[in-house]
Design a protein around this nucleic acid. Structure first.
Lengths: 251, 251
DNA sequence: ACCTGAACACCGTTCAAGT
DNA sequence: ACCTGAACACCGTTCAAGT
């Protein structure tokens, strides 16, 4: 904010311009030509600060996700923190649909790593460890990223919501066709009118219920054990925060 | 197989050539020039049978997923069928990593719709209906597609497995760094040496446990109710089968 | 109706040349 | 060291012209 002269190109300024383009014009509008035009510089200049377009997209995604993760540091209840964390990611993707696609492109990118670390910390605070922890962490991360991608793709496809209704109609219709059972018919119509946000949270709760249940491999009462390890959760949430600057050209 | 002259171009032959290119040379090698070269035809010829590259990719993904769904029609036990169905999808994506990315690109494509219909049918056979059914269906589809994308991206990234180990090392190390707790250390090391396939199935079981639990919103014993509605499952599995030819140019 | 292939309007990335 | 912008090696898609 302080230096607003055309001082110098920097990774931060490039990422900032990238996010602006993606938010306002969509993923297809992101070209290095568009970035250099917005920064009024030469085509090859950005390659001094960024390895390539993939690096640029990963940095932009982290620029959106990083602050979301940092914002959930305060909560001490693991379940509530997990709901807040996952909902925060969902809403970030709702507001920046291109992030949904980007997070599913590379499990090695910083933003995905940060999500893993934060959710992993919360699950540990819930009493999980060992294989149960990695299995639960992977399941939750995969669910969140999958839901993010599907929701984002739906949002991208239907800026005016018409095509989206069209899609849900079609899915509901085809689904209903395969069975005359009134229960199936009812479900199909629910599919048409559901709220993505509520449905996303319902999915998070299904996973939390599955993790708490015995068949998923955890001892007994998971909520009670969490008391002394709850401290790591708030610590872990802060780690992913200012990561927008990390991982510059090493890819 | 029978007509192997250069008889005529058709949507099927084009999709077949597309799958071959994607399997043997990867997603970056799929250009319409590569497709027309393999079919020794003119550049614009394929646009008589296919709307655009997106349509081509969706058809190719359905060409892989369709037979997988059709192959699980026999099972009468919903839980076992869900495990077989999801594992089949996972293994198809393991063998064709480009499918993992493609399924996450558009929730409206046939392959995703077919997955929804099949899993939805099985969940209904499990005794779910109404909001519980759509919530569970969305959660399971999102988990499967998310896991698929992450696994596929990992597989694509590391043909030789070296970069993959590198990634897991890095994640484990960063994760372990945030806490000295031996349980976290242990989990981090497990992260390094886990089996993607087993972890995927563990996630499916977490989900199934979550559905069975009361807190996810289902009545009581879900397995017992399924007896009379189990019939629709085998029917539903057949619907997605020969869909490679459907949805030609309407997009 | 189906096919051809040149043409169009773009891409990401590189690199000699400048400051 | 950082930046420029022309050049390179590509893309997906269209469309007049052929059969």
């Amino acid at each position: 904010m302080t230096p607003r002269r055309s001082d110098a190109l920097s990774r931060e300024r490039i990422v900032e311009a990238t996010i602006q383009i993606l938010d306002s014009e969509g993923e297809s509008a992101l070209t290095v030509r568009a970035v250099t035009a917005r920064l009024s510089t030469g085509r090859g200049a950005i390659y001094h600060h960024v390895t390539n377009k993939d690096d640029l997209l990963a940095a932009a995604a982290d620029g959106v996700i990083g602050p979301v993760l940092a914002g959930t540091a305060g909560d001490d209840d693991p379940r509530r923190a997990i709901r807040a964390l996952t909902l925060g990611i969902f809403e970030a993707i709702d507001g920046h649909p291109w992030v949904g696609a980007q997070l599913n492109r590379d499990p090695m990118q910083i933003a995905v790593l940060d999500i893993w670390k934060n959710l992993g910390g919360r699950l540990h605070a819930l009493g999980l460890s060992g294989k149960a922890l990695t299995d639960a962490g992977a399941a939750l991360v995969n669910y969140v990223l999958g839901a993010a991608a599907q929701h984002a793709a739906g949002a991208r496809r239907a800026a005016d919501d018409a095509a989206r209704q069209d899609y849900l109609d079609r899915l509901a219709h085809e689904w209903a066709q395969q069975d005359a059972d009134p229960l199936v018919q009812e479900s199909a119509s629910l599919l048409r009118d559901h709220d993505d946000r509520a449905q996303f949270l319902a999915g998070v709760d299904i996973f939390l219920a599955g993790i708490a249940s015995d068949s998923a491999g955890i001892a007994s009462d998971s909520a009670g054990i969490a008391s002394d390890s709850a401290g790591i959760a708030s610590k872990s949430a802060g780690i992913g925060s200012k990561s927008a600057g990390i991982g510059s050209k090493s890819g």
